[in-house]
Simulated scan of single mutants.
Amino acid sequence: LILGRTLAEQIAEAVGSDDTNDWPGRRVTLYPLPLTVAGQSRVAIRARAANGATAAPVQSGASTVQLTRPLTPVQVKEAIQRKVARATPAQRTTEASAGQRGLLAGKLEECWPADPDAARKRRSVTVFLIGRQSVSEATAAEGSALLDWLLDPASVAEGTYDLHPAARQEAEAILREALVAAGQTSLPLGANGNRMGGAHE
């Protein structure tokens, strides 16, 4: 198994140290993550805290890479999956609260303001990111992770819950990736996110 940067960071997070000398004897759970890259289906190997364990905070941040937004669709999906994996078992099995679901639906639709097709686009993004047709199906962990992606942290602290400046651009890219994953050719999207040209289903 080749240890790439993403997998190394996930192992470091799972065991609580980014010093590889601390890793022998530590347990992690490896799992497959289906991805669509350039229209091709791929399976990546990812890591999380071993079953029954919670991820410890990484002790040294020297080799941890902080991603700069906007993120790619795959980076958003992996970040959300990491946050869900770190949640408690109860958060991963309990449905999101009505408040979470309402805020999540509203913020996703804000990614396509005044677009009559925003609800369909929201569903496509939700399916791509968490494999669910609707935010009403999201668990508390998934709802929290999605809101962490969508919301500007400063606005959360202020209680205004504004959309993150990069969220619209990321949502558009995720929508394009979702269309390709659904078997449609990769066509440029117009300003409102509608495909330009003919459809190839």
Rank of each mutant, 00 (worst) to 15 (best):
V65C: 03
P70D: 13
K77N: 01
E78N: 00
T72I: 03
T64R: 15
A49H: 09
Q75V: 01
T64N: 12
E78A: 00
A49M: 09
V65Q: 13
N51L: 12
A55T: 05
T68F: 10
V74E: 10
T54C: 07
Q59T: 12
P73S: 04
T54N: 13
T72Y: 01
A79Q: 13
P73T: 00
Q75F: 01
A50G: 07
Q59F: 08
R48G: 06
A53L: 08
S60K: 03
T68D: 13
P57E: 11
A79P: 02
S63T: 14
A79R: 11
A55L: 05
L71G: 04
V76D: 01
A53Y: 07
G61T: 07
V74A: 06
A53R: 09
A56H: 12
A50P: 05
S63M: 14
Q59W: 06
A55F: 04
A56D: 10
A79Y: 01
G61P: 04
P57F: 02
T64C: 12
T64Y: 15
P57D: 10
G52T: 09
L71E: 03
R69C: 11
P73H: 01
A55E: 07
R48E: 08
S63Q: 13
T64H: 11
V58M: 11
A55M: 05
A79E: 06
Q66A: 15
G52I: 08
Q59Y: 09
A79N: 08
P73E: 02
A56V: 06
L67I: 07
G52S: 08
A62C: 11
P73L: 02
A49V: 08
S63K: 12
T54A: 13
V74I: 12
T72V: 03
S60I: 02
R48P: 09
Q75R: 00
T64F: 15
A62G: 10
A53P: 00
L71W: 10
G61I: 05
E78M: 01
A62S: 13
V65P: 05
S63D: 12
V74S: 05
T68L: 14
P70Y: 14
G52V: 09
A53E: 11
L67T: 07
Q66R: 15
P73R: 01
P70M: 15
T68V: 15
V76W: 00
A56Y: 11
R69D: 10
S60L: 03
T72F: 03
V76E: 02
N51I: 10
A55R: 06
E78P: 00
E78K: 01
E78Q: 02
A49T: 09
A53S: 10
A53I: 01
K77G: 00
A50L: 08
A56K: 15
S63L: 12
S60W: 02
R69W: 13
G52Y: 07
V65R: 13
V58P: 05
